[in-house]
Each structure stands twice: as structure tokens, then as C-alpha cells.
Design a protein around this nucleic acid. Structure first.
Lengths: 346, 346
DNA sequence: AGTGTTTATCAAACCGTTTTACCCAAGGTA
DNA sequence: TACCTTGGGTAAAACGGTTTGATAAACACT
């Protein structure tokens, strides 16, 4: 009936050694003869021994948890972008024997009021923050001196894992150029968001490298709007109204691109024949669009993995916490262009 | 500089009492005079004392965690149904001082291979399972004798929190009847899914109560398909082909309803004038449909809360674990009809 | 005054690990 | 032979709480 789980003492008794020896074996530490090591491992296996986390963590002076924070509106939006990132962190966490505590914070974060519980209770060894969050929150985190890694966002003093926005955009636009396009529009929203600004920069670089000039009239941006489908529809209308219409458009994200596409199709234009379109993010809806959308794919799980790995390195084991090495701070996750019908050869 | 966090001993010293007394005060236990109680609380506050979770949990012989398991494809689908449920559990967990460990399992779960880590390591006190999962997994869980609550799914021997599918469907159909409709179709998919079967049953009951007979020709079901938008489009076509067309349709979920709507509109019919539509779930897309969709709203966060509360009761404190009381097992979460344009008065 | 009962408090044991400091025997060196 | 090392092992001290059992003081009742 040996119902309740077995402890390290049981293993020690079964193997005929001391508790400390068992611990040493199980943690690959100290000098243990091959013979004893085997006896211990055998006993542990036979008893189905699994160390108790709470005991181990208490002893090791750590919590064994990391927090994953993102804005609620980001988490619940229909494109599961951050959900995939979370899954990536969860996957990598296993390799470091960490548990991930996921929590959301409101868009308009107020200090004490919304502080995640695990921060108040100090029951995480490190923190992952996904997406743009309130500066107030970042301040609070900074003050806690907790190892932290940002994902898909950047802020002074924090290491981060970000999309290669500029590179991805460049490749996308180079693709359009290669398809023979010369008049290529940029469709964007709020440029204060670093990702969008970087994508615009990638657009510029691609044009310049190809010896094409950047026509300001073709940079269609609504600086007050979010990069949504609705915004895309409006910008699509502006594109239609242009005196000299471009033959292609690179959109800062897929939502915008799908909005533009909708407007164009409704106006009777054809994609890609009249206007070719390329988006960014490769969301689920990209394949199901009326004209499947060429887009820049982002490896979301991979970003989560990279962030978690980086965080785990910072956390331990054994105050390995190296001094901040400026420049090694930001990890850039690669992208990939996925070509579909919306940019087929002219 | 008192850098490292303060312990219960610091508080005891500051308040001039023993460690045990501090513990008693902080847990509202035993007899403590009002004077000492205040001294202790004051000291704790001034030192910013927060009990260390690992220590507390080790001592209390619990882990302080509960697991939240759902299928990966459910988690990452674009309608954030389970995401909201998760948020509900997270919210309620705070009240019980529990942490929620979220993990996904694959659709085709294989025993040892995919077992969630926290189950192997036995580092949860209880388990929440959301949505349909592999029977193999449920077996494994059953064998662990871990307090468990299912959400939006049912299985023999497990308590569950489920949507009031039948009641919600009934109210939806009663609404259509009240609008003057007499020929009302049912649109559904795989009836093996209990929710869909229950919604069909609610449809039947509403008709019968109103003295209307159930016309088998109006029950449009594709038993081999998933309840998706695409399926809705096909069923919409079948509806159009009907000799005597119904004036309204109740759809087993919003995805189906939106598919039907698309087909109807493309065929030149008008909603609700020619055919009124009602869905179920009240997904995000319901408001943004060409004709905003009347739907049965499900309180997802609330379902999460209910499940977590129930689980917390089962877990403890103090072996409160009452013997299973059959009948108290299933908690039915209420629904609410949200009327929009798709079912406006005829 | 003596005897139970209740109230308020505390010392010590305990939870299951890791880690430290120490020990002993064997081998190597001067 | 006397004196280090070193390899292999252990007992005991953390880690920071909770809970139990004992105790002293205050109170109530004959």
C-alpha cells in the first residue's frame, strides 16, 4: 500500500547510503564511486522517486518559477500571436526545470493596484514580458532587480528578443522589386511603435539598394490609428485616390494588408494584377483571404524559446549572472518570406 | 540596505513575540490577544513581510499550484474561448492563493510521452481540464487520484462546469418564435459532441413547448464535419435548396451561423428579412458580421471562476474533501441571449 | 484556599531537500 | 616513518515556514 510518495530518505535506506549521497548522485555533484552511483539510481528508479519541488526550491533558495506577463487585450485578441510565444517559452522551460506563471495586466496599468501577484509575493526567479506594456509597469519591474527579458518589445536597460522587422521588410520589398514593380507603396499605422518604424526603414533600405527613390506620396501612414483591418481599409481608399497609382504595396502587417485588399477588390481592382500586396506576420487569416496573402512569417514559438533560454542563463545556475554585456542584449529572431498569390509574378 | 527579504523571524523580533505567534496571527488561527495581534501586524507591515511560498508550501504539505490543461489546437485557435476561461481561473485562483500552471497537450495524446510535466513531478494539488481531450489522458488523470474539474466537457466520474447548452438554445429559439417565426431550421455539425446535441435538444423543446412540430427536413446537420464557417456555408446551400424555405435558422454555433449568413447574402437574400439567424457562443466576430449576429452569450470567465472555486473546495483546506455527492457534480453556467440585427422583428 | 478551566504564549519538532564541514582510509611524497 | 593529498562518504546545519504540546497566568467556582 506504500501510498504516499517516497522521499529521499527512502531511497537512501534502500540503497544503503546516506541521504547526502543520494542528493549528490541525483545532482551529479561531488565524488561518488561508480558502484554507489548505480545502486542509488537503481533504488530511486524502483521507488519511483521524484524530488519534491517545494523542498528542493526552499533549499536552493529559488522559486523554480518564471513569470510571463502580457497585456490582457493582447492575449485575448483573435490572432494568437502571443499565445504561440507563450507556448514556446513553456516548451523551453521544461529544459530548465522551470514553471511558467502566465498572467495578464490591463492596458492602463496602475502601480500597486495591478501588480501581478507573483511579483508581490516574489515567487518568481525571473520575468518575461511580451508585447508593449505600460511604462509604469516597466519601471516597477526595473526597481525589483529581477532578471527580465522582453519579447517583441524594447526598452532601455532590458534585454529583448525581437522580430527582425527591418530585415523581413527588406526581403519583402526586394521580392516585389524582383517581380518587376517600381512604384511600391508603404502602408502603415502608428509609427511610434518600434516594429512599424523598423518595417518602414526596411522598406526604405530595399528601395535605395535597388537604386529606386522613396516617393513620400507613396508612404501612406495613419499616425493616430492602430494597425488594424479597419485602418487598412481607409488607407486602401487613400491609395485608390492617388493620382499615379502604385503597382504594389508593402503593408506593415497582415491586418492592414487584408483591409487594403478588401477595399481594392470592392473597387473592382484585381490583386495582384492591378496591385500586388505583401503583408507581415503571416497570420492565420493570410491563407484564407480572397486572394491568399504573401507575407513575412515570424517564428513565434522560436521567439519564446530564445527568450526563455536567455532568461534561464541570466537566472542561474550559481550566480552565473554575468555583468550586462551591452550589444549582446538584443536577440533578433529571423523571419521568412512566404510567397502566395497576392504577389504573383506580373 | 536591508537588502534581502525579511523572514518571519525578523517580524517576531520586531514585535517582541515568538515565531509561532506571528504565524498564528498571519493565519488567523489560535487565540491571540488583540494587543499582540496588532503589534505583529504592524511589525509585518513595516518590514514589508511576505511569507515565502516555497517554505509555506513545504510546511503545509501542498504545492500551491493547480494545473490547467487544454488541447493545443484549442488554445491557438483564433476565437479565444479557452483563453477567457483561463483568465477566469487565474482570477479566482488569487482568492485561494493558488498559482495556475497552464500547459497544452496534443490532440492525439499518447500516454507517457505527452504527460504534462507537473503531473509527472506531482507538483499540483489539483487539475482543471478545459475542452474535449483524449480519453487516454483522462484515464491517466483518473489513476492519479488528483482532484480534478472539467470545463466545457463531461466525462464519467469527473465533476464539470458546462455551458447551459440546452437552456441557451431554448431561449434562442423561443426568441425566434416570439418574433413570429414558425418555420425555423436547425443548423448543426457533428452531433457526437455533447454541446451540439444539447443545443439540438433545446431547439426541440422550444418548438414543442410552443406547440410547433419538429420538421426533420429543417434539421440540417453534417455529422461528419466540424462546426466551422466552411461547414456553415455548405449547410447554407442546403437550406437554400429547400423546397419550402424556412424564415429563420438557429445555428449550433456562431461559426456555422456566419457561414450560413455568407451563403445567404451571396445568394442575394436578406438577413433578417428573408431569413433570420441566431448563433451560439457570441464570438468576437458576431458583432462585426455584415449583419450583426444575434447570439447566445457564454460567460467564459465566469465558467473558469466556477471551476476554480469548485476545485479549491475539493483541494482543501484540511481534508474537507467530502465524499462525492452525485448530482452536485455538474455545475451549469448560465447563458444570455444577445439580440442584434440578424433577428430583428419581422 | 484549592481546584479546574480557559486564554495567551512559546519552544521545539517537522516538512524534504541541498550544502557544508568534517572524517577516514588509501596513496603519494619527503 | 611522518606528513600531506585525495577520493568517497556522512552527520548535521541550513532553508523559512506551520503545527503540536507544554506551560504559565488569569479566571471561575466550590
Amino acid at each position: 500500500m506504500g501510498s504516499s510518495r517516497s522521499t529521499i530518505r527512502d531511497v537512501a535506506r534502500a540503497a544503503g547510503v546516506s541521504v547526502s549521497t543520494v542528493s549528490l548522485v541525483l545532482n551529479n555533484k561531488g565524488n561518488v564511486s561508480e558502484a554507489t552511483r548505480r545502486r542509488v539510481l537503481k533504488a530511486a528508479r524502483e521507488l519511483g522517486y521524484v524530488p519534491l519541488r517545494t523542498a528542493r526550491d526552499l533549499s536552493k533558495q529559488r522559486t523554480g518559477n518564471v513569470g510571463f506577463v502580457l497585456r490582457e487585450d493582447h492575449f485575448t485578441r483573435s490572432e494568437p500571436f502571443y499565445t504561440y510565444i507563450f507556448l514556446g517559452t513553456e516548451f523551453e522551460a521544461r529544459l530548465h526545470s522551470l514553471y511558467v506563471l502566465l498572467t495578464t495586466i490591463p492596458r492602463d496599468y496602475r502601480k500597486g493596484e495591478h501588480t501581478p501577484r507573483f511579483l508581490r509575493e516574489r515567487s518568481v526567479d525571473g520575468l518575461l514580458i511580451a508585447g508593449k506594456v505600460s511604462a509604469v509597469f516597466l519601471e516597477e519591474v526595473r526597481a525589483m532587480k529581477l532578471p527580465t527579458v522582453l519579447i517583441d518589445y524594447e526598452a532601455e536597460g532590458f534585454p529583448a528578443v525581437v522580430i527582425d522587422n527591418q530585415g523581413g521588410a527588406r526581403v519583402a520589398v526586394e521580392h516585389l522589386i524582383q517581380q518587376g514593380h517600381r512604384r511600391i507603396a508603404f502602408i502603415g499605422a502608428d509609427l511610434r511603435h518600434p516594429s512599424i518604424a523598423d518595417r518602414l526603414e526596411g522598406y526604405r533600405i530595399a528601395l535605395e539598394r535597388a537604386g529606386l527613390s522613396v516617393d513620400p506620396a507613396l508612404v501612406l501612414v495613419d499616425d493616430e490609428a492602430e494597425p488594424t483591418r479597419a485602418t487598412g481599409q481607409q488607407l486602401g481608399a487613400r491609395l485608390l485616390a492617388l493620382a499615379e497609382r502604385p503597382t504594389a504595396a508593402f503593408c506593415a502587417n497582415d491586418a492592414l494588408a487584408l483591409g487594403v485588399m478588401e477595399t481594392l477588390l470592392q473597387a473592382g481592382l484585381r490583386v495582384p494584377d492591378d496591385v500586388a500586396l505583401v503583408g507581415f506576420d503571416d497570420v492565420q487569416g493570410a491563407t484564407q483571404a480572397p486572394v491568399p496573402l504573401t507575407s513575412v512569417r515570424v517564428f513565434k514559438e522560436q521567439m519564446g524559446e530564445l527568450a526563455m533560454r536567455h532568461l534561464a542563463e541570466r537566472i542561474g545556475p550559481e550566480q552565473t549572472r554575468r555583468p550586462y554585456a551591452r550589444g549582446q542584449h538584443t536577440i533578433v529572431a529571423p523571419t521568412e518570406l512566404v510567397v502566395r498569390a497576392s504577389s504573383a509574378r506580373v
